[in-house]
């Protein structure tokens, strides 16, 4: 989705404000939201891609106005309601994340593999063009890269494809590459000649160029 979250290259957002000796959480509730979010996702009713798409689907004005963990709170309230987790009789079937499991849970993340049955469509050194796609669903192909030509710098192995996984349309596992785009290809000739941006891209985001 061409949403407000896809910020790379936007202008007018002002200088970067950084705070010295910043705490991990600025209020107790932020820590609780962080933890509730992890505990709820551990139930397996939704995946990280689904979750990201909900954040991206916030009304743009809300996305910009809400603080980071307030966005998380909003999305968890929505997901709890959508999945009827608080409805009568909904509990019990799903065991809660325990304290012991919480530590272990932190040791798990998004699976990848070197599955040899999934063949790469590109090799390191290939010239590739990022597809000009504009899906209304979830995608991790940022707007600023679409239609641009780069070079495959590294093959990172096989990963679930977020564009389908977010909508529970299958994992469509495929290779992910670091693709190097010259800054001038992305932003024009005013940009520093040597500079570049490396973007991680799935097979389905690329064509040979």
């Amino acid at each position: 989705m061409n949403g407000i979250h896809d910020m790379g290259g936007m202008q007018g957002m002002g200088p970067v404000q950084h705070e010295a000796n910043e705490p991990v959480f600025h209020a107790e509730w932020e820590g609780r939201v962080f933890a509730i979010n992890a505990a709820l996702r551990a139930m397996g009713r939704w995946n990280l891609d689904t979750w990201r798409f909900r954040i991206e689907s916030l009304a743009p004005v809300d996305y910009l106005r809400l603080t980071y963990y307030d966005r998380w709170l909003r999305i968890n309230e929505e997901l709890v309601a959508k999945h009827g987790l608080l409805a009568a009789g909904s509990a019990k079937a799903i065991p809660a994340l325990t304290a012991a499991a919480a530590s272990q849970r932190l040791g798990r993340g998004v699976p990848s593999s070197d599955d040899p049955t999934v063949k790469p469509q590109f090799r390191v050194g290939d010239r590739v063009r990022a597809r000009n796609i504009n899906p209304v669903g979830h995608t991790r192909l940022p707007r600023y890269a679409r239609g641009k030509v780069g070079v495959v710098a590294r093959d990172h192995g096989v990963y679930t494809f977020p564009d389908t996984n977010a909508h529970l349309e299958g994992e469509h596992r495929q290779h992910v590459y670091s693709v190097r785009f010259a800054a001038r290809e992305l932003w024009g000739d005013e940009t520093a000649r040597k500079d570049s941006v490396y973007i991680d891209m799935w097979d389905d985001y690329l064509d040979h160029a």
Binding site: Y159, V176, A192, S196, V197, D200
Partner: peptide, 10 residues
């Protein structure tokens, strides 16, 4: 300058 945009799970 090389900028790395973390668009996947790397």
């Amino acid at each position: 300058v090389r900028v790395w945009d973390s668009t996947a799970e790397l």
